[in-house]
Amino acid sequence: MSPSEGSEEGLRVRNLSVTYRISRGPFRRPDELRALRDVDLDIAPGRSLGVVGESGSGKSSMARAFLRLQSLSGGKIVWRGHDITQMTEEAFRHMRPDIQMVFQDPLASLNPRMQVADLIAEPLLTHRRDLGKVERRKIVIETMGRVGLRPEFAERYPHQLSGGQAQRVGIARAIVLSPKLLICDEAVSALDVSVQAQVLTLLKQLQEEMGLSLLFISHDLAVVRYVSDDIIVLYLGRLVEYAPRDILFENPRHPYTRALISSVLSSNPRIEREHRSPPIGGDIPSPINPPSGCPFHTRCPIAEAICREKMPELRHWPDGARVACHVANRGLVPPSETTLKGMQ
Results as ranks from 00 to 15, higher is better:
residue 233 V to A: 04
residue 202 L to C: 07
residue 254 H to L: 13
residue 220 D to Q: 13
residue 183 I to G: 06
residue 212 L to W: 08
residue 251 N to W: 07
residue 230 D to P: 00
residue 252 P to C: 11
residue 195 V to D: 05
residue 164 G to H: 05
residue 237 G to H: 11
residue 148 G to V: 06
residue 246 D to S: 14
residue 232 I to C: 04
residue 156 R to I: 00
residue 261 I to T: 07
residue 218 S to E: 09
residue 250 E to Y: 09
residue 236 L to I: 09
residue 240 V to E: 13
residue 193 V to D: 01
residue 196 Q to Y: 11
residue 190 A to S: 15
residue 213 S to Q: 01
residue 213 S to V: 00
residue 223 V to Y: 02
residue 157 Y to P: 00
residue 230 D to H: 15
residue 244 P to V: 08
residue 229 D to L: 02
residue 210 M to Y: 13
residue 183 I to Y: 00
residue 219 H to M: 09
residue 161 L to M: 15
residue 154 A to H: 01
residue 154 A to I: 03
residue 232 I to F: 03
residue 263 S to M: 12
residue 236 L to Y: 03
residue 265 L to D: 08
residue 153 F to M: 15
residue 245 R to W: 01
residue 167 Q to E: 06
residue 251 N to R: 15
residue 197 A to C: 11
residue 256 Y to T: 10
residue 257 T to S: 15
residue 244 P to Y: 10
residue 155 E to R: 14
residue 184 C to E: 01
residue 167 Q to M: 08
residue 169 V to Y: 02
residue 217 I to V: 15
residue 149 L to R: 07
residue 149 L to W: 05
residue 201 T to H: 14
residue 165 Q to Y: 07
residue 211 G to A: 07
residue 195 V to G: 06
residue 265 L to A: 13
residue 163 G to R: 12
residue 200 L to Y: 02
residue 260 L to E: 11
residue 257 T to N: 10
residue 245 R to H: 02
residue 184 C to P: 00
residue 207 Q to M: 05
residue 168 R to V: 03
residue 217 I to E: 13
residue 261 I to D: 10
residue 233 V to W: 08
residue 237 G to C: 08
residue 161 L to W: 10
residue 149 L to I: 10
residue 176 V to G: 04
residue 240 V to A: 06
residue 185 D to R: 08
residue 258 R to W: 13
residue 164 G to M: 03
residue 216 F to G: 06
residue 179 P to Y: 10
residue 192 D to T: 08
residue 249 F to P: 03
residue 186 E to F: 06
residue 216 F to R: 08
residue 238 R to I: 02
residue 183 I to H: 04
residue 218 S to N: 06
residue 239 L to A: 04
residue 201 T to M: 12
residue 167 Q to T: 02
residue 258 R to L: 15
residue 259 A to E: 03
residue 197 A to Y: 10
residue 246 D to W: 09
residue 195 V to R: 01
residue 154 A to G: 11
residue 208 E to G: 03
residue 221 L to P: 08
residue 194 S to D: 09
residue 191 L to S: 07
residue 155 E to Y: 03
residue 261 I to L: 15
residue 149 L to K: 04
residue 220 D to T: 06
residue 190 A to V: 03
residue 190 A to G: 09
residue 175 I to E: 08
residue 194 S to F: 05
residue 229 D to W: 03
residue 216 F to W: 10
residue 151 P to R: 00
residue 178 S to K: 15
residue 183 I to C: 05
residue 265 L to H: 13
residue 198 Q to K: 14
residue 190 A to F: 08
residue 186 E to P: 09
residue 169 V to H: 06
residue 244 P to C: 07
residue 168 R to P: 01
residue 166 A to V: 05
residue 264 V to Y: 01
residue 265 L to Y: 11
residue 168 R to N: 05
residue 173 R to K: 13
residue 170 G to A: 13
residue 159 H to N: 13
residue 190 A to K: 10
residue 162 S to L: 11
residue 189 S to K: 02
residue 170 G to S: 12
residue 154 A to Y: 02
residue 212 L to I: 00
residue 147 V to M: 11
residue 264 V to R: 00
residue 233 V to C: 04
residue 219 H to G: 03
residue 190 A to T: 12
residue 223 V to E: 01
residue 261 I to F: 01
residue 188 V to I: 15
residue 238 R to G: 12
residue 160 Q to C: 03
residue 248 L to K: 10
residue 181 L to S: 06
residue 168 R to L: 02
